[in-house]
Nucleic acid binder design. Structure first.
Lengths: 362, 362
DNA sequence: AAGAAGAATGAAAACGTTTTCATTTCTATT
DNA sequence: AATAGAAATGAAAACGTTTTCATTCTTCTT
């Protein structure tokens, strides 16, 4: 079961291995037409398969990029990854996918592996903490492009930013424009930049409209608790649970802004359970415009980001850098025109606030 | 920017490269405790990173497995992939993810790439057509494990089967048990085994109950049409569109069985649009128990498969084979006890059939 | 017709490991 | 105390490429 090598085809074609290499690889060294075609023919006959490992060993390059995301099992990411994948295969690149759950140790480990595989490009999404191996990666000249919130930048990386502050502002502004003044925000513990950004946007929007920030309308909880169960995405359940708390602690609220659409779905389901109508009694909003949000009942008002487009943009950017690798003259600036904008998608789950102040049905 | 190699640490530690290799790699050759610890220490000091490409070149092994799925952008797959990923990283393996859209040419290309990367294990899910490079892969001793419908088996592969026939039967049986007799089935064009299996299950269940199969209740359409738009998952829209057709062609139907939950969601949304109630007027069912199905309104009755568990099982199986690679004494039989069962999840979208035969509201 | 420039080819070293085989060092048995 | 055997180490070849450098073969210019 010996592999067919460049030597085998060289022998059969009656030329030297060097020449074969020049036609099989991406060399631009000239080689005459007839020997080229002969080599190609023989290679096909022998079913020759270039050995990327050997090539990479020599060239210190391997056509693949590592993608690190929190978890593919969050509906935000599949489309993003799909966009990345599409442009990657278009350029002959492969994708190493890695779910790190935003866990420090796990991220470090995965990057370590990528380092060992001699991967030269890492695309990290919404990971807002650097690790030793990540630092080592950029130190060794690896290309790190990161997509994160507006208040975070890796040193030495190309930092794309999605403006989560603005996203949250847009959401709250929408709610305020409908007449809401008591708006609950449900988010995870603030250990992650995105969430901090969202909180900031929330406060900013309130402030702009002269509405006082009320600590009691803020629902923050630990994520760790149910991480153990990888079997399902916990956000929906967390949405459910929050409703219970909210109804006890601040039923006077008229709108509920959720961290993402899944959570909003959970909130809606629980409200429905309790025979509370959306949006007549509570308006509910999410983020991300997940694919299902258009089809739920009521359909979800949300703030959208072109995920697929983003994925494409990021990977294209990465590949451009990768293919120009030797000269790293450019700074780590990211062109502004690559920022894909964000927009409100207004659907059925939000409406004017209820007028009566009754409610309270535990 | 020269790499630190095994030679560097050998020199600094005052031993030979061979010895360093033995402690850094997974050799079981004995090496004394003091030199081992010394090497380890020096390696850490120098920030030595083993070069997997070089290792792979020598050992013809690289700790990664290729995963081929139709598209990560179909909610069935993220959880499956997550399961795979979890066990893979647990064993130090990396995942090469590849979306092939069930396209022949694309699949072939991606496998070709994996071949070039010297990947020794490919996990393929619901791809029911072999390609030249896939054949070459198994010919060269690659391990192919495939998850597919019950009527399909790759030659030379470990074939896991999910029983789509049975799944469909379960669904139809449920509907029949509620009293339905006129059951529509909406599926994609039958170029894929899963769909054929589902159709078979549908017919079988009807037959068992002595209900005649009615061609008019079968809605099949081409998938190609809107594949171009990768921006969104088209099944929901197809569900929508089907409602229109169904209402024209066979409004007498009382239950609608959809290919998957996304499609069911689309169907529900369109019915709601037309003020037609689910399940009072039409029962609607899907497949897959997607994570959102529990939270929609009405929540969806569906047939579930433990996707995360399946992913783990498959990857574990793969890694076991991979680690025992040299001896391939076993046949390609797959142990029966690894079959993860399928079950009905009864929720709100199905109920007894309406009694009046009115309807028809185009 | 001679020579220069360029095009096409080949030889061989290098990339960073693993592993076989040979050698040295140790331990235990007599 | 001698030696068999085991344990620990090292030297060197091999894995399959790419690429530098040297060489040969063309083709043009004068």
């Amino acid at each position: 079961m010996k592999n067919i090598t460049i030597y085998d085809v060289a022998k059969k074609a009656g030329v030297s291995p060097s020449t074969v290499s020049r036609v099989m690889g991406s060399s631009n060294h000239p080689v005459s037409e007839n020997v080229r075609s002969k080599i190609l023919r023989v290679a096909k006959e022998l079913n020759y398969i270039p050995n990327i490992q050997a090539r990479g060993l020599k060239t210190q390059n391997n056509a693949s990029v590592g993608v690190i995301i929190p978890s593919i099992d969050n509906p935000f990411y599949p489309q993003l990854v799909r966009g990345m994948s599409d442009v990657a295969v278009g350029h002959g690149f492969s994708i190493y996918l890695s779910n790190c759950d935003r866990e420090y140790a796990l991220t470090d480990l995965q990057v370590q592996t990528m380092l060992e595989h001699n991967i030269k490009g890492i695309l990290s999404v919404y990971i807002d903490r650097t690790t030793p191996s990540l630092e080592q990666f950029v130190e060794r000249g690896g290309i790190l492009v990161s997509l994160c919130g507006r208040n975070f930048a890796y040193p030495g990386a190309y930092n794309f930013q999605t403006d989560k502050v603005r996203e949250a502002e847009i959401a709250v502004e929408h709610l305020i424009s409908l007449g809401h003044k008591k708006i609950a925000l449900i988010i995870n513990e603030i250990n992650c930049q995105i969430r901090a950004d969202k909180l900031q946007g929330y406060r900013q929007a309130l402030q702009k409209s002269g509405i006082a920030f009320n600590e009691r309308y803020l629902y923050v909880y630990q994520e760790e608790a149910d991480l153990a169960d990888n079997t399902k995405n916990g956000d929906a359940d967390r949405g459910r649970a929050s409703v219970q708390m909210l109804l006890e602690r601040s039923p006077e609220v008229t709108a509920i802004l959720c961290m993402n659409d899944i959570m909003a779905l959970g909130v809606c389901a629980e409200l429905r359970n309790r025979k509370i109508r959306v949006p007549e009694e509570y308006s509910v909003m999410g983020f991300d415009d997940s694919f299902f949000s258009e089809f739920t009942n009521p359909s979800l008002t949300t703030v959208a980001l072109e995920k697929y487009e983003w994925g494409k943009t990021l990977m294209q950017f990465m590949i451009d850098r990768l293919e120009a690798l030797p000269d790293r003259s450019d700074s780590r600036e990211v062109p502004n025109d690559l920022l894909v904008p964000v927009h409100l998608v207004e659907r059925e789950s939000t409406g004017v606030p209820r007028t009566d102040n009754l409610v309270i049905r535990p």
